[in-house]
Amino acid sequence: MDLDFILAKGPIFLAAAQLTVTVAFFGILLSAVVGLLCAVVKFYRWPVAHRLVSAYIELARNTPLMVQLFFLYFGLPRLGFIWEGQTCAILGLTFLGGGYMAEAFRGGLSAVGKDQVEAGLSIGLNRFQLLRYVIVPQALAVSLPAISATTIFLMKETSVFSIVALPDLMYVAKDLLKEGHSSETNTLLVASYLAVILPISLIFAWLERRLRFAGFGS
């Protein structure tokens, strides 16, 4: 093990990890927004929208991210939609993640009893207030394990972004592997991903314990 090599290449990995985290952050945030919207549409069974949303969820969940990205990055520009790698990566992650997040939230929403909705309506809450104060807080607690699993899954999926020419951790590693030093490079690679994903996994584990303690989500 060549320690000097590791110290010399550390900053490159740090920069790449930052890129991974940035793209993952926006992608996962947007996934959660898309997922929540889709779940609400399905919850209220809005006539046409609910079918469209179901179709989208199935497409997103039953195809690999890499194929979605290839289509977005190499296919759609030919039809006039041109975007650069980073936008494409965030869009791809959102397309995939939106489907998974929708299922995660749907599970939580369907666990909120009809009596809760009726009780809320009967004290005069409107639709938005009902969502904001009654349904979402309870659904979120029930959905948390699924949300956490999806977040970790999406974090891991970010490892394919070098196919849309993003200089992320895998891209940097592949470049260095060409020069030899494979064990040092791989050590840096594993350490970087542990540093990025492990804290998130621990935070979610802590959150899940907290919410269970509070009596939700059981």
């Binding site: 970790i152 974090m155 891991k156 999926e157 970010t158 490892s159 394919v160 895998m170 590693a173 592949k174 592997l177 494979s182 064990s183 490079t185 791989n186 690679l189 594993v190 991903y193 542990l194 994903i197 492990l198 996994s201």
Partner: peptide
């Protein structure tokens, strides 16, 4: 199990493909 859950599969592929042969 926890290691496998946290590590992207792609990293594992790299580890085994590029390191196993050398080490």
């Amino acid at each position: 199990l926890e290691f496998i859950r946290v590590m992207p599969i792609l990293v594992l592929l790299f580890l085994f493909y590029y390191s196993l042969s050398k080490i």
